[in-house]
Design a protein around this nucleic acid. Structure first.
Lengths: 343, 343
DNA sequence: CTGAAAGCGCTTACAG
DNA sequence: CTGAAAGCGCTTACAG
C-alpha cells in the first residue's frame, strides 16, 4: 500500500503539498498538482482514512439513521442507499431507532461518538427535528419526509408529496363511488391539525381534504384508526375499525404494510377484497404487486429518493452548498384491491 | 472527550498500562487494572477508534457482505445484525453483491481497502468460498449457510439445516396426499449432485430425497424449474412449471419470495391455492403470515442466526478462539396454502 | 506557492 | 508488572 510519503518521494514534492492536492486546496501550482495527480494515479494511491480521521478528529464517514423496526419499505430504500454510497467509494454505518424513539438525539450521539461527515435520515418525526436538530451542524439529508418548513440550512430533504399523493389515492375510492371511507394508520394525534407536517399526518390530512372537497363526511371517531406501520398492527387496527363502523366500504391505509395486514383481517372477517370492501395503500412495496388481490397503491420512487439523497449529501460534504428540498414524482398503481361498493 | 492521556493522569499509571487494560492484556497487576477501570468508568472514556485503527493498520470495524438484491429475507436478518453489532458498541459497513456475483472476491477487496477486523457473510455460494476464501485470514462468519465442510479455521457458520427442513416441508405435501410434486427455485445445476452444498441445492436435494423415500417419482425435466429468489422470478417460473406439467398438485418453493410469486401466478392461471394446488415455502418472511392464503412454510430463526453470528464473530476477534458451526432450530409453520389434492 | 515540523490518540517492542 | 518512546499516515498552522 502506497502512503503519502511514497507519493511525495516519487513526485519530488513534500508530503504537505501532496496533502494539499489530495484535499483539493487552491494554493498549489498547476504544475505540482499535475505531477502529483499523475503519481497518485500511477501508484493507485488511496489516502488512509484512519489517519485522516484521527488528524481531523472525525471518525465515521457517513451515518444513516433509520426510523422503524422491520419496516420493509425503508429496508428497501436503505439497500439502495448503501449501494449508492458504495458506488461513490464511501462507507456508511447504520443506526436503527424504534418508531417511537427520538432519531435526532440518536444522531446527536452519533455525531459526538462517531464524528461522521454527514448524516442520512430515513424517515423521521418533525417534532424531534424542530426541537433538537439545531445542535447538529454537519450536512444532513432527510429522505422520505419534507424538511423545507424546518428551515435548517444544513438539512436537505427528498420526499414524495404525501398530502397530494394521499388525496390521489383516496380519490380513486371516490371515483369508484365510495362514500363511506375509513383511514388506517398514523398516530392518534395525526388528526389534530393542519399544521402537522409529519408524514403520517400529511397522508391522513390529504385523505380527509379530498373527502371534504367531495362532500364526503368524515367522523374521526368512527372512520379513523391509528396504528404503527407493521402488518400485524394494520391487521389489528383494521379489525377494530370495521368493528366500530361496519358500514365502511373503502379503506385508505397510509402504508402498504398496513394495507396488506388489513386485507388479511377483512379476509378473516369473511369479507372479500375488493368485492365487499376496497383497500388502497401507500408506498408501492415490492410485494404489493404479488399480493392477492394486487394492491392499488401509491408507488414512491425509491431509487430516485435514495440516489438523489446520497448525491446531494456527498456534494454538500465536499463543497458545502446549501440545502435543497425536492419532491420526487410518485406513480399511482392501479391494482385489484378497489372496486365499486356493493350497494 | 477523555483520551488515554487523561485516564493515565487520573489513575496515576502510564498510558502504556492503560492501553494494556483497555486491550485486556494479561500482564497487568490486578491493582492497576482495578484502578484504571474505575477511572475509565468514571470518565466515561471510549478509545478513539481512528487512532487505534491507524496504529494497528486496520480500518473498518466489521464488514458485512450481503448476497442478493431486494432479498427481503436477508434484509430482515441484516437489520437484526446491525442492531446487534450496535449493541456491542461496534460499527459495521455493508457491501451488497448481486446473486450471481462473487461475494468472496468482494470481501477480499474489502479486506485490502477497508481492513476490517472481521467479516459477516449473509448468504453465499460455496464454490466461491472453496476457490478463494483461503486468502482471507481474519475472523469471518457465514450466516444462513453451512461452512463446516469447507474446513476453514477462521470461518464459523450459523445455519438452518436446509436439507432436513426442506424434507420436512415436502413431507407435509406428502402427508396431505400429494404425489405429483414440483420444485421451484435454485439454479439449473442444483439438481446435479449429492455433493453440492449450496443452500438452494441442499433444499432441492432434501425435497427430492423425501420424495424418493416415499416412492414418489421425480422427473427433473418435468417437475423442476429453477429461478432466482425474487417474487417476479417465482411468478414466471411457476407459470413455466405448470405449463410443462399441468398435473402437479403440490409445489415446494425453496424461498417464500418464490412461493408468494407462485401463488400469484397460479391465481392468474385461474387456480385456487390450496384447493387446486398446494404451495409450501421456506424462510418464514414477515409477510408470509398475512398473505392470502397464509403461507405454509419453514420459519428460520432469524434472531438467533443473527445474534449468534455476531457474538461469535466479536468473540473470535477478541480472543481468537476457533471457528464453530451451529445449526439453529427451525419451526414449521402451518399456514393455509396446503390442502388435500383435488382428485 | 512550498517545505519542515508538530501532533491527532493510540499500541507495542524494548528495557528494566 | 510497568514506563518511556517510537511511530502508524495524515493535516495544518507557521515560516519563508
Amino acid at each position: 500500500m502506497a502512503t503519502i510519503q511514497d507519493i511525495a518521494r516519487f513526485s519530488g514534492y513534500s508530503i504537505g503539498t501532496v496533502s494539499r492536492v489530495i484535499n483539493n486546496r487552491a494554493d498549489v501550482s498547476d504544475e505540482a498538482r499535475a505531477k502529483i495527480e499523475e503519481v497518485i494515479k500511477e501508484q493507485n494511491y488511496q489516502p488512509n482514512s484512519s489517519a485522516r480521521k484521527l488528524r481531523q478528529s472525525i471518525s465515521s464517514e457517513i451515518t444513516i439513521v433509520v426510523r422503524g423496526n422491520g419496516n420493509i419499505f425503508l429496508q428497501s430504500v436503505l439497500e439502495i442507499i448503501q449501494r449508492c454510497i458504495l458506488e461513490h467509494g464511501e462507507t456508511a454505518n447504520v443506526q436503527f431507532v424504534g418508531e417511537l424513539e427520538d432519531e435526532v438525539s440518536v444522531a446527536l450521539q452519533a455525531v459526538r461518538q462517531l464524528k461522521p461527515r454527514g448524516i442520512i435520515f430515513l424517515g423521521g418525526s418533525m417534532d424531534h427535528f424542530r426541537e433538537e436538530f439545531a445542535e447538529i451542524t454537519i450536512p444532513c439529508v432527510l429522505i422520505t419526509a419534507d424538511a423545507e418548513g424546518l428551515g435548517f440550512g444544513n438539512l436537505s430533504s427528498f420526499t414524495t408529496n404525501d398530502r397530494e399523493a394521499a388525496a390521489h389515492a383516496v380519490s380513486t375510492l371516490i371515483w369508484h363511488g365510495h362514500r363511506r371511507i375509513g383511514i388506517l394508520g398514523g398516530f392518534p394525534e395525526s388528526l389534530r391539525g393542519v399544521w402537522s407536517d409529519d408524514v403520517p399526518a400529511l397522508r391522513v390530512l390529504g385523505a380527509i381534504e379530498v373527502m371534504e372537497k367531495n362532500g364526503i363526511p368524515f367522523d374521526p371517531e368512527r372512520d379513523y384508526e391509528p396504528c404503527s406501520p407493521l402488518a400485524e398492527e394494520g391487521y389489528q387496527a383494521a379489525k377494530r375499525l370495521l368493528l366500530k363502523n361496519p358500514d365502511l366500504t373503502g379503506i385508505f391505509a397510509i402504508k402498504d404494510s398496513i394495507a396488506l395486514g388489513a386485507i388479511r383481517a377483512f379476509r378473516d372477517m369473511g369479507l372479500r377484497v375488493p368485492k365487499d370492501i376496497s383497500v388502497v395503500g401507500f408506498d408501492g412495496v415490492l410485494y404489493s404487486k404479488y399480493s392477492v388481490p394486487r394492491l392499488t397503491t401509491i408507488q414512491q420512487d425509491v431509487v430516485a429518493l435514495a440516489r438523489k439523497g446520497v448525491e446531494d449529501l456527498l456534494m454538500r460534504i465536499s463543497y458545502d452548498s446549501s440545502a435543497v428540498h425536492e419532491q420526487i414524482p410518485y406513480r399511482f398503481v392501479n391494482g385489484e384491491s378497489v372496486a365499486r361498493p356493493r350497494d
